[in-house]
Amino acid sequence: MRFRKTGAAVAAALALAVSATACGSDSGSDDTITIGIKFDQPGLGLKTPDGAYEGFDVDVATYVAKELGYEAGDIEWKQSPSPERENLLSRGDVDMIAATYSITDERKEKVSFAGPYLIAHQDLLIRSDETAITDASDLNDKNLCSVGGSTSAQNVKNELAPDAELQEFDTYSKCLDGLSKGTVDALTTDDAILAGYAAQDNYEGQFKLAGLSLSDENYGIGLKKGDTEMQEKVNAALEKMIEDGSWKEAVDKHFGPAGYDPGEAPEITEKS
């Protein structure tokens, strides 16, 4: 009888240990949140040489995460190049993406969005001495650069300048290098992104924005398709950020030095 009791006790202890381990594993996965951002976009999403992360998207994502119950130290930042954003969400590699992610009908077939939290406009970054590019049609005999998978690249191909020689890279930094060396005539993407590049100290005086509003780009936070519960929570966090003044503070902090004014905070429209 004593042997049976001991065996039962051991079995019970093992069961409790397994249960505790399982519970610990589940709670551990809830202790952190993985957020996709860009690593190479000054003013929006930038990984600095010392390993820190900064920019408007970073501040928005940090605020949202805090409203979801995560402190800044609980966030794991993951690089999210434009062509990979849908894949990162569908595979579950990230919990959300705040990476200059324009809300489009095509993308909404694959992911869900919260927001928008910023409205940008497609523009051109050109060299400071460039005088021949004053309209989108001027690009048809030019070498143009953008990032593959971006709405800017699609707009150029399909509407703005279908005869332009378009080079597509995986990051805007490579386009900027081509513009600096003269191998491309213009870099096209959203004005918020371009303003950040133009304001960098190492490029001071080299580039300017063409000042063309070629499209409206509504930046949203990308979520796994159909996750309406998370969508509602993120929308509530964005609304609070706007109402308590934190949104405007982030705008002034990251866009003010570049002289870029994105206007008023947009209305949250992406709701289930």
Rank of each mutant, 00 (worst) to 15 (best):
T151N: 04
S173K: 15
T171P: 00
R127A: 02
P162D: 07
L144E: 00
I126A: 00
K157V: 05
R127L: 02
L124C: 00
E159Q: 15
Y117K: 06
D129L: 04
S112R: 01
Q167Y: 10
V156M: 13
D129M: 06
E106Y: 05
S150M: 04
S137M: 12
L160A: 13
L118E: 02
D129W: 03
A120E: 12
L118F: 07
C175E: 01
H121N: 11
K108S: 10
A132W: 07
A114G: 09
Q154H: 12
D129G: 05
K142G: 07
Q122T: 11
E109C: 03
K108T: 08
K142A: 11
S173H: 14
H121S: 09
L160Y: 07
A132S: 15
S173I: 12
T134K: 14
R107P: 01
E168L: 14
L124M: 05
K142N: 08
A153L: 05
A132T: 13
S146T: 09
I133Q: 09
H121D: 03
Q154S: 13
L118Q: 06
L166K: 07
G115W: 00
L118A: 06
S152I: 06
A153K: 01
N140M: 09
A120W: 07
D129I: 00
D170C: 12
E159T: 15
A161I: 06
S128P: 06
S150K: 04
K142W: 03
S128T: 04
S128E: 03
G149M: 01
E159A: 15
T131M: 10
I133W: 07
A136H: 04
Q122R: 12
P116M: 10
Q122F: 02
F169Q: 11
S150I: 06
D141Q: 14
E168K: 13
T171M: 01
Q154G: 11
D163M: 11
D170L: 13
A136I: 08
E130T: 10
Q122D: 12
T151R: 04
I126C: 00
R107Y: 00
Q167I: 10
N140V: 09
V147H: 00
S137L: 13
D129H: 06
A136K: 08
T131D: 12
I119W: 08
P162I: 02
I126W: 03
Q167T: 12
Q154V: 12
L139M: 08
S152M: 08
D105S: 13
E165I: 14
I119V: 15
T151V: 08
T134V: 14
K157W: 03
E109Y: 02
Q122W: 02
L124D: 01
S152Y: 04
D163K: 14
L160K: 11
I119M: 12
T134F: 13
T131R: 12
A114R: 06
A164M: 11
F113A: 01
I119Y: 10
G148C: 10
Q122P: 06
D138I: 13
A120P: 11
S112N: 03
A153Y: 00
A164I: 01
